[in-house]
């Protein structure tokens, strides 16, 4: 019966420790699902006007306020796609601005269909789904934060201690990461400083930022909470910061998945499902 690796008795010499509480595990997976939909629908919504501006407002004619645009243009030899940031223009044919659609034809589109939900341009549907998953993200975030504050999870596991933030310690940790030398034994019982900064940056900075900049784009919320746009410097700025926060979240996810793969995906994913992490006993002191 016990032939399924996931519940197999740990080999001799390993210690099984309680790693993640049930609330943290539930919040993690719900968050992961919500993020997949929020990013996919968000890119679809972005494609309806693939330009970003700073300030109170911004539309096609406001070139002086625009800092990013993803578009397609024509020239001899056919159309090409590009990303323009300030005065810098980078050709991105095939991916951004101009990509191959489901019908095999080249189409002018900000982000390509494989990155968006739905995979075709549908602003109405993308918005329906975006706001549904935004509610999930917010309620899930409140559950996580409430539990994390009461249980001490955030103070104990997420917030770095002052001495951990000492440059020498941070540099040491970076160097160990670069050598793919991951913590073992007693050390592996808690997060090291880079993990704390990454997870804390995600749950305490980026997710709140992406939620509040999202609300900052809502004309209804602007009327209810005028401080939202005072904080972000206008509606066009809130939209830009929403996009930047999304990009940083995507960056976090990429690094996070890479680190899970490098540090031992089975043990890591099992710990986030069952709550229990295995640690090699011989290196315990």
């Amino acid at each position: 019966m016990a032939t399924v690796p996931i519940e197999q008795a740990p080999p001799a010499g390993t210690l099984v420790v309680k790693r993640h509480s049930a609330v943290v595990r539930l919040a993690h997976w719900l968050n992961a699902l919500a993020m997949v939909f929020l990013i996919g629908t968000g890119l679809n919504i972005f494609n309806a006007h693939p330009m970003l501006y700073w300030g109170e407002y911004g539309a096609t004619a406001d070139a002086d306020r625009r800092w990013l645009s993803i578009a397609a243009a024509g020239r001899k030899g056919g159309p090409y796609g590009y990303v323009e940031i300030g005065s810098l223009r980078v050709e991105t044919t095939g991916v951004l601005g101009l990509s191959t659609g489901a019908n095999g034809q080249l189409q002018a589109l900000g982000f390509p269909g494989w990155a968006t939900f739905p995979s075709y341009r549908d602003l109405g549907t993308a918005r329906n789904w975006h706001f549904f998953w935004a509610w999930v993200l917010i309620l899930n975030g409140l559950l996580y934060l409430g539990h994390g504050l009461v249980s001490g999870h955030i103070r104990r596991d997420i917030l770095p201690r002052l001495k951990e933030l000492a440059p020498a310690n941070v540099l040491h940790d970076i160097a160990r990461h670069a050598r793919l030398d991951f913590p073992k034994g007693e050390e592996a019982r808690r997060y090291h400083v880079l993990q704390k900064l990454a997870y804390g940056g995600m749950v305490l900075v980026l997710v709140p930022l992406v939620i509040f900049t999202g609300l900052g784009m809502s004309p209804g919320m602007n009327a209810a909470w005028p401080w939202l746009l005072e904080l972000f410097g206008g509606r066009a700025s809130a939209r830009s910061l929403h996009f930047v926060a999304m990009a940083l979240i995507v960056g976090f996810i990429v690094v996070h998945l890479l680190m899970v793969l490098l540090a031992g995906p089975i043990n890591g994913i099992r710990a986030m499902v069952t709550g229990k992490l295995r640690i090699a006993r011989e290196s315990l002191t």
């Binding site: 329906n128 789904w129 706001f131 549904f132 935004a134 509610w135 809502s218 004309p219 209804g220 919320m221 602007n222 009327a223 209810a224 909470w225 005028p226 746009l229």
Partner: peptide, 22 residues
């Protein structure tokens, strides 16, 4: 998915029924 619209409307009416646009 569509149930989110009613939630958003109720929430916005709760926190800003009489709010003025800037």
């Amino acid at each position: 998915i569509g149930s989110a619209e009613a939630a958003t409307q109720r929430w916005q009416r709760l926190v800003g029924r009489d709010g003025l646009a800037q």
